[in-house]
Each structure stands twice: as structure tokens, then as C-alpha cells.
Design a protein around this nucleic acid. Structure first.
Lengths: 152, 152
DNA sequence: TGACAAACGGATCTGGATATCCAATTTAGA
DNA sequence: TCTAAATTGGATATCCAGATCCGTTTGTCA
């Protein structure tokens, strides 16, 4: 339902939220099981959207440019794959100018549901409580790297 | 957010619901502005899912195999692009076996929202009331055919 | 200031979704 | 039973998200 890129962006952000110091692309990649070269592109998109910052050179890396509490899932999604609402009839029917037909009204409602849900959720809500074991960090320690489909 | 194919399937179904007699692929295509050859494939998928029936030969065409009231949007979506719920951690983390991490829990909740909404909506809800002008039929009469992006 | 480490940006490759084409098959009606 | 009309199914083409590669730029530190 969401693109692979969106999934990657979210995983990377969660990782950065759990690891506040600047993190290298390579490190994030292995921890979150994202192709490193592609992750690099995704991080660039998040950078342009002012969600992550980055530092070149030795000791450089990527980091959140705001506190997790101040970043919503919606922002992240919109940075890489804008959730588009249906504002006018996709068929361009004149009769639907003033009002969407029931079909597209329904589809837009679905988009609205997601938009609301994602807009109300911050990255803080996605961070696991310390003590709990469900951390991406788990992977970066054990370097588990089974290749697999991670379709969303 | 949904694929082009999904949009096509929904448009075609709505058209068939509004035009109960068997409709030729070509007719549906021009009315709903779907590439005819591709629509043919989509209809085949809907046929295999037992949502539409079809009749070959002279006077043949496609038609709903059930009353609009008995077909949900969810069924249609699932016929062409299954809405997939997240049942287990996409990264295959052992620690997430018993419980999804907050991220994937949230993403699955979003999928659940859509699933519920679409499951509760029938094709009948998408048909326009006779008298209202927001009908696809509008197009089939005037043969408006401006080529355009109809991305969802 | 030199050497190295990291992100950046552009070019390219690949596979799956989208789209097209056409021959084969089925069917109604003259 | 013949013909025209329609779907069906297979092969193929096109497009774009996803992924890779590599040279360039920016930065740290000794």
C-alpha cells in the first residue's frame, strides 16, 4: 500500500531517533537492512525536506534535525512519496467540477483517514522503550543479514 | 496511494453497475477513459475473482455477476492489487516475532483502517442517483476524450 | 597542508507495473 | 452452417520505481 521507499525512509528515521549521534549511511543500512546506495538517496530526500541533517567528512553522518516528538509520520511520507489527496475528478469530467463523484469521494476519504492517522503520530511514538528488546539496534549488534523480500 | 490498475477496476465496476446490460470492452473503455487493451486484462482479473461475468460473441460483453449491494470495494481492490496487512516483521527480526515493532504496528493499523472502510462500502454506495449529473455516462454520450494523466 | 573519511550528485541498470498487438476461440443471428 | 462480433490469452513493448556505481565535494585530524 505504501512504497518501498516510504518503508525505507521510516525505518531509517526510527533508527536515527534511537541513535542520536551522527550515523553513517553504511551503519544505518546494515542495521535497517536497506540497500546502502539507495538509502543514500532516500536520506538526501529527507535532508531536502529538512527532516534529517547531515555532516560530511570524518566523523560525519546523518541525524534528525528535530526532536522525534516534532516529526510526524506524515511529514516523512510526504518527503518521499507525497500522499496525494483527490481534489478534482481524475477524469476531468466537467460535471464533477463542483463535487467529486461517490467513487473518488470515497477514495479521498481513505486518503484522509491515513493523513489524519499519520499526522497525529510522531516519531517519538515509534521509538521503543529502553529495556524492551524490539529495537533495530538488535540487528546492528548481531549483523543478521538474511536476504529477503521486505515488501510492505 | 493505490495503483492505476485499482483505479481502473473501480471505474469499470461503477460503470457496469450503472449500466446493467452486457457492455463491450470498447464501450466501457471510452466511457471511463481506460486504455481498451489494458482494460481487457483488468476485466479478466475481475472475472477470475467472480466479480464480473462475461459473454463472448455477438451481443456479448461484461456485466456484474452480483448485485452492486453485494460487492464491496475491498473485494475489487483485492482482486487486482491485494491490500496486504503486515502480519510479521518485514525485517524478519526474531525479537519481533511475537509482537510487531511500533512502526509496523502503526503501518498495519493504517492498512486496517482502509480495509475496514473499503469492506463496509459497497458498489451500490458508489452509484450516482438517477437525476444527478455525476455519471460516467456523461462521457459516453459526449465522447469527450481529452488525453490526460489520471493518476490517483 | 596532506591524507583519509564521509556525504553528494550524476549516469546507468533492472524488474515489475502498465500498456499494446494480434491470433485463437466462442457465440448470436441470418 | 456461415459470418461477423465479441472475449480470451499469449507475446511483446514501454515506463518508472528501485537499485547500483563511481567520480566529486566537503570535512576532520594529525
Amino acid at each position: 500500500m505504501f512504497s518501498q521507499t516510504t518503508e525505507y525512509a521510516l525505518r531509517a528515521i526510527v533508527y536515527l531517533a534511537e541513535n542520536p549521534s551522527p550515523q553513517k549511511t553504511e551503519k544505518i543500512a546494515s542495521a535497517t537492512q536497506i540497500p546502502p546506495a539507495y538509502l543514500s538517496k532516500v536520506l538526501q530526500q529527507l535532508n531536502r525536506a529538512a527532516i534529517v541533517g547531515s555532516q560530511r567528512g570524518l566523523k560525519g553522518g546523518h541525524f534528525l534535525s528535530r526532536k522525534p516528538k516534532k516529526i510526524t509520520i506524515l511529514e516523512i511520507v510526504n518527503a518521499v512519496e507525497p500522499l496525494q489527496r483527490i481534489k478534482e475528478c481524475p477524469l476531468g469530467l466537467p460535471a464533477h467540477k463542483t463535487q467529486l463523484c461517490p467513487l473518488h469521494k470515497k477514495l479521498d476519504e481513505a486518503a484522509a483517514l491515513i493523513e489524519r492517522s499519520f499526522g497525529n503520530t510522531t516519531v517519538l511514538d515509534l521509538i521503543t522503550q529502553p529495556g524492551n528488546s524490539n529495537l533495530y539496534t538488535f540487528v546492528s549488534k548481531n549483523e543478521t543479514k538474511k536476504k529477503q523480500k521486505t515488501s510492505l
